[in-house]
Design a protein around this nucleic acid. Structure first.
Length: 584
RNA sequence: GCGCCCGUAGCUCAGCAGGAUAGAGCACCAGAUUCCUAAUCUGGGGGUCGCAGGUUCGAAUCCUGCCGGGCGCGCCA
């Protein structure tokens, strides 16, 4: 249960009562009422702006409305004190007993704590990675992969029916380049001295294997054959090989997808034609000539008549071409068809995770979706900023030519997938991210992965010590669930309980905002609070978790430890990070 | 030229669908440290929230205009 939602509903009930009594107008709009934790703990546990937002439409003084609400709020279950503060805030202080009950909720829910029904089972499609099948993934792809994967898990936890999708860009000119590059490696594998890889082809070593495999399978049949005879087969083979490599890298990162949609298959199935027919039928395309971009004129610019989509009618800045001069579709055209296809598969809500360099593309895609779905479909595009790799503060030099290109796989192999995943999520998606090989593996408070994992491991450590001191019985499931948590009365203990109880709210708001990074910050807060509690035990032995001569109190504190580990594990699960039992 | 994103402490960044004196970590300064196995702890200084208007009971948050940085801008995806 999200307790803030609970009190939001309770306040609503009180407002209805006041309406019935004629104290407030019957048609009062209550939608702007919020119930949330106050920033300052001195203001209680729960605060609402109800009186202030209702004041104007009700034609009353906010503090008068607050007084009306306060008179009734004191009777709500769990509310110990009510006060009116500032311009008309209504602050509720909840009883220790209420919090003890919530702690039991955390323990009973286990890993499912934080699960929400807010999404109401609504279908949502999250498309991420979608790296071109022309080579290995770099860390930038990794960020998008982790972000998309975590966002999908977050939405899933928040009650949405999530589909994770990968769009394979296997139809453009670049996969022909891939095929030609593979052909060079094929000839090389057959013993030909091919020299340097020609300009314009992919020079990467990763194609050597592909060439060898082709040579083994095809023999020298296509060695000197004209391109038209082998292009299709080589392309298909190379794409499959690249996708196998990409999927293996994703597996190493723990990233999964439910659907892989092929651009080529979409084109061959006539989906682009269908989308274009729809646009034509609705007079949303026309033949015209675009104005040249101002300020920066491309060298080879010349006026050209093209088939244009009326993007400006849907919020874009200029109309966008859908067909190239050779008659083939632009990337935009196939992308429109792809998103229409997603919509027709039942996804009115779509989220795309892109690299920030595609930012200029967002408006036209959103315009296209508006046009193609009659305003029914919605697309949120999450742009991921660049990742800069550093090694103890020094930038990692990357040069494809010098062979010092660091792939995503290199990074995973070096620091482990859990570290990669967590660090990638410690920044907002649209902020740049510094990934330092030394810092991310450092065992110190400065390293968020370590700090959070350590808190989880420390719970385990406490359990072991408790078992040694008081016997295995105090750490069993029964003992934890049967603990008299009413013994938790120290303010710092209750503070941790209150923090843990925010988890459902964090899940819902992070899911709503499509911002998984909030979870990383929350987990950092939980870890800090827990470590802080531990440290208090150093100064004041009565606050230690394990009290040798008081098994009941120890059990209560172990329950709090267990609940802390629960919440951390629940958050790490969203991130796809395995909580550790022990630090090494 | 236009569009998108960003501009918060010396540094790296949070700031939750506007909310009550703007937060954290690092760094800096001052103390503590024979500590439940654990890779320290406590306290302190430090901010015109880029600038200027506007909306609002209330703006770091929303709107407009500037300034500064990044990305992008017709047959690359």
């Amino acid at each position: 249960m999200n307790l803030f939602t609970h009190f939001r509903e309770q306040i609503e009930v009180l407002v209805e009562e006041l309406k019935a009594l004629g104290e407030l107008p019957a048609d009062l709009d209550t939608s702007r009422i919020t119930v949330e934790p106050p920033r300052d703990a001195a203001h209680g546990d729960v605060t609402t702006n109800a009186a202030m937002v209702l004041a104007k439409p009700a034609g009353k003084n906010p503090r008068d409305i607050a007084a009306l609400l306060a008179a009734r709020a004191g009777d709500l279950a769990g509310v110990e004190a009510v006060e009116i503060a500032g311009p008309g805030f209504l602050n509720l202080r909840l009883s220790d007993g209420f919090w003890h009950a919530r702690l039991r909720d955390v323990l009973d829910a286990g890993a499912a704590y934080g699960d929400s029904a807010a999404g109401q089972g609504k279908k949502v499609n999250v498309e991420y990675v979608s790296a071109n099948p022309t080579g290995p993934m770099h860390v930038g792809h990794g960020r998008g992969a982790v972000f998309g994967d975590a966002l999908a898990a977050l939405l899933d936890k928040a009650g949405y029916a999530v589909t994770r999708e990968y769009y394979i860009n296997d139809a453009g000119a670049q996969v022909d380049v891939l095929a030609r590059s593979a052909h060079v490696r094929y000839r090389e594998a057959l013993g030909e001295n091919v020299g340097a890889i020609p300009e314009g082809l992919y020079p990467g070593e990763y194609l050597v294997e592909v060439g060898q495999a082709l040579a083994a399978r095809e023999g020298d049949t296509w060695k000197d054959a004209p391109e038209a005879e082998w292009l299709d087969a080589f392309r298909d083979f190379a794409i499959d090989a690249m996708m196998d490599m990409i999927k293996a890298d994703l597996a190493a990162l723990g990233v999964t997808h439910d659907e892989f949609t092929s651009e080529r298959a979409l084109v061959e199935a006539g989906k682009v034609g269908e989308a274009l027919d729809f646009l034509k039928d609705n007079a949303l395309v026309y033949h015209g000539v675009l104005e040249p971009p101002k300020g920066k004129l491309p060298d080879d610019w010349e006026p050209r008549e093209q088939l244009l989509f009326k993007a400006t009618e849907f919020g874009d800045d200029v109309d966008r071409p859908v067909q190239k001069s050779d008659g083939s579709w632009t990337y935009f055209a196939t992308d429109m068809a792809y998103h229409l296809d997603k919509y027709r598969r039942g996804y009115a809500d779509m989220i795309d995770v892109w690299g920030a360099d595609h930012g200029g593309y967002v408006k036209r895609m959103q315009a296209a979706i508006k046009a193609l779905t009659g305003g029914e479909g919605a697309l949120d595009v999450k742009l991921c900023q660049m990742v800069s790799l550093t090694d103890n503060g020094e930038p990692v030099k990357m040069s494809k030519r010098a062979g010092t290109f660091v792939t995503l796989r290199d990074v995973i192999d070096k620091v482990g997938k859990d570290v990669v995943r967590f660090i990638m999520l410690t920044r907002k998606n649209d902020a740049g991210l510094d990934f330092d090989f030394v810092k991310v593996t450092e065992q110190s408070k400065d390293n968020p992965v370590f700090y959070v994992q350590y808190a989880h491991a420390r719970v385990n450590s406490v359990m072991r010590m408790a078992a040694e001191a008081l016997g295995a019985d105090v750490v069993g499931e029964d003992a934890v669930h049967g603990a008299n948590v009413g013994r938790l009365t120290d303010p710092s203990e209750l503070h941790l309980v209150k923090l843990l109880c925010q988890w459902p709210r964090i899940v819902e708001s992070a899911a709503d905002a499509h911002e998984p990074h909030r979870i990383a910050f929350f987990l950092g807060d939980v870890a800090a609070e827990f470590h802080g509690l531990w440290n208090k035990g150093k100064e004041d032995a009565s606050l230690r978790f394990v009290i040798a001569d008081d098994a009941e109190l120890t059990c209560a504190r172990l329950a709090l430890c267990r609940a802390t580990a629960n919440v951390i594990a629940s958050g790490l699960a969203v991130f796809g990070v395995t909580p550790v039992e022990e630090m090494r």
